[in-house]
Write a protein that binds this DNA or RNA. Sequence first.
DNA 1: CTGCATCCCGTCTGATACTG
DNA 2: CAGTATCAGACGGGATGCAG
Lengths: 113, 113
Amino acid sequence: MNKKLNPASCAVDYAFQRIGGKYKGRIIWYLNDNNILRYGELRRIVQGITPKMLTQTLRELEEDGLVLRTVHHEVPPRVEYSLTETGKELLPFINHLRVWGEKQMKLEGDTCY
Amino acid sequence: MNKKLNPASCAVDYAFQRIGGKYKGRIIWYLNDNNILRYGELRRIVQGITPKMLTQTLRELEEDGLVLRTVHHEVPPRVEYSLTETGKELLPFINHLRVWGEKQMKLEGDTCY
DNA sequence: CTGCATCCCGTCTGATACTG
DNA sequence: CAGTATCAGACGGGATGCAG
């Protein structure tokens, strides 16, 4: 478990500490269900992320038991990431959030960016 | 709309930008459904928040159209906060997250903090 | 290919004090 | 009561270079 978590004042607080952050939601979502992605694939898919942040975020997700990291000892090395059962339980939530986000983005039109 | 939003790479990214942050989830949750809370009430309920952060977060939620701010011109002043329809649409998801959080907290036991 | 080490900077967050 | 002002520190995040 991620030691950096602060004492949570309630379950909502706790949950946001665990999946908050700039990239965690997207990474979990891209890893949806039985999708297995390699480090390099994630780097391409999660637009704008730097290697450092990708590694750091994946480590936190791993510590938190949401993501499984599998190292294949080959040359060149291959590292695959997938969701744990606990991580998969978050998918419905993120999916609903995504649907909400899409709706909101349409309502905005071009006036925002 | 909050001008600080960055161009979103996808709807998940977008949604997390809008409800991410240290206190937004909790504030929305405490403002559930037809709950109307005053500034001082929120300050007590959202444990650990400072006046500055509470004001700042409420302003962002207001700019983002998730929270409604109603000023009653009285002495002493009274300002009430409630969810907009858009904000209410987020409640099921936050509740889902809360349930997940509660489950996880139980699994952890006392080993974490 | 998959990372880690380092340096650096801007933003976010907090403590404290003050005001209409 | 409902904030604002100011200061300072912590932290997130990016750029670059190196390693197994």
